[in-house]
Amino acid sequence: MPGMLKIIFGNLFKKRATRLYPFEKRAPFENARGSMDFAHMENCIFCNLCAKNCPPKAITVDRANKRNALDPLRCIQCGVCAEACPKKVIEMRGQYNEPCYAKRTHVAAQVVKCAQTPPEQK
């Protein structure tokens, strides 16, 4: 009893430990695995290694249409895809994915802007 008394009175006059989360946001730690992101999509060669190595099979690669899709609700943030990627397209961000009302896939697509070679003829 005396031990706890000391602690509760200490707490009463100490600054609260609470991180007032939605109002004060804490920056994620360095190297934290919050969510995965196709950050450098322009380098992607659609080799399918990320999809093959993904443990929950959350990534699908559509080589014909040059699109990578991620199901963020299935992703477990293990970071294997980022390690497997030969072109370092994928990065792990410290910030986590936002909660959502509906299941939506995140699609990252390559679009040819100055159309020397349209994607169909390549």
């Binding site: 509760i8 009175f9 707490n11 009463l12 100490k14 609260r16 430990a17 609470t18 007032l20």
Partner: peptide, 10 residues
């Protein structure tokens, strides 16, 4: 409120 403060929270 006081209980929370004693437990070091808001």
């Amino acid at each position: 409120k006081i209980t929370a403060r004693m437990q070091n929270r808001v």
